[in-house]
Write a protein that binds this DNA or RNA. Structure first.
Lengths: 246, 246
DNA sequence: CAGTGGTCTAGACCACTGC
DNA sequence: CAGTGGTCTAGACCACTGT
């Protein structure tokens, strides 16, 4: 609802120029949260472009949460201004290899049991479900870099009962044997208890970063895992550039 | 390079069906890392659709890292299988409000100085730069939920020198006054030192989650901030569904 | 019920890159 | 230099939703 003199810089694809120009309006607060931005049709005539091109720019702004789009009403600058950051969680084997180090794997324990109460009461697994509980650690040049504590749903993955997991990390094994359809993550800090400290070769009570991942296949939780990293490890999150592609 | 009998499920937009069908081939390992997937032109004839629709599906798979695309060569299943997760960092005010609690802000300290050595040697700020150093905390219903430790580049934002920051949180103030173009984050765990423990009302040495954010405007770092959350706080990361939109 | 965005088409030209 | 993906166009129909 202000002047819509979008300035394209002529650099790169047209839809990125449009995205950049609009993102600039928003980050510079010329278009403020809640403001309606021009309709696709208006931008088409203003910028002398086709609607698909304008649409591609607006879609990507919507994907990144900078704008909100509503049929019949129009597109609006998002009221909840937030920053998105793409968090990429690579397989630890790849990560260690990318560091130029030698990957190592050690199984700590592996046994079949009923799903424990803390997981059933959190509605992660149904009560009485048979699961495998695996604890293991991952090393880079012999130094522990990750402690893994994982439960695998035996109803969904019966083959896991016959796998010893003493050579193959459970993550890799699962990737090979189970098609997953969805994953959900939580990330938080924990203090190392004595056992964790010993496994990771760190001091007791040292702060560690923990990623919790729940993986589904269809509507069933296939596996639930804690990945605990020593606290000195920084997990880098990707850059976010509102002016660039999403 | 396998059979390309893609099964569309007829549910939702065509490009999502195509994306889902290809994602299933990949997660089920029928198409394995490194395999070439059908060309856009092949998919067009196989699926009887236009190229733009196929392209939209493949683009979104590439955005999420499931496939890699190379001109003249084709599209390939990514060799580095990793999981993407969109990490959304909302303004703390909004987050507290969304929780149905009352937001509170308290300035701890605010003073102008030269950029400290730890930031200049990390090439975050140039040596001798004038900055404002702000420490403050954010409360939900009177309970501390975030401690903020921020530096603002006075060369890029001279107006920050005249702002007392005793009413307005620096994050909000900056959003209002500075157009930013890029942000980079790192996330890691820290142990609460006595001062932090006091500010957050937690025990000394308790594990805390810290988000480090560096924000640019053009090619200059505008602000650098540590956001430290009590460790019991879980930061939820978005879901990732390879079969769904990116 | 009218107008917006969501999707789709059947073309097109071009840049890049393996061969 | 030929073939792939990257981009763009000028249309079209439809679903949803404010009014």
């Amino acid at each position: 609802m202000t002047d819509l003199a979008l300035q394209l810089d002529g650099d790169g694809p047209l839809y990125e120029q449009i995205r950049r120009a609009i993102a600039l309006k928003i980050t510079s607060r010329q278009w403020r949260p809640g403001d309606r931005i021009p309709f696709e049709s208006e931008l088409c005539t203003t910028l002398q472009t086709s609607r698909m091109t304008v649409n591609k720019a607006l879609q990507s702004l919507a994907d990144d949460g900078l704008i909100v789009r509503r049929r019949k009403a129009g597109s609006f600058v998002a009221t909840q201004q937030s920053v998105q950051a793409p968090l990429t969680i690579a397989k630890i084997e790849d990560e260690v290899a990318a560091d130029g180090k030698t990957y190592g794997y050690e199984l700590v324990s592996c046994k079949a049991l009923k799903a424990p109460g803390k997981l059933t009461s959190a509605h992660i697994f149904p009560r009485g479900l048979d699961v495998v509980h695996i604890q293991c650690r991952h090393l880079a040049d012999g130094v522990p870099v990750l402690f893994e504590d994982r439960y695998i749903n035996l109803k969904a993955v019966p083959a896991a009962a016959d796998e010893p997991f003493n050579e193959t990390p459970p993550g890799s094994w699962l990737l090979e044997h189970v098609p997953w359809t969805e994953a959900e993550h939580a990330i938080y800090a924990v203090s190392a208890d004595p056992r964790l400290a010993e496994h990771l070769h760190i001091a007791v009570a040292e702060a560690c970063l923990r990623i919790e991942r729940r993986t589904w296949a269809d509507d069933e939780t296939v596996t639930f895992v804690h990945l605990t990293y020593p606290g000195n490890r920084r997990t880098l999150v990707g850059r976010f550039q509102p002016g660039q592609r999403g």
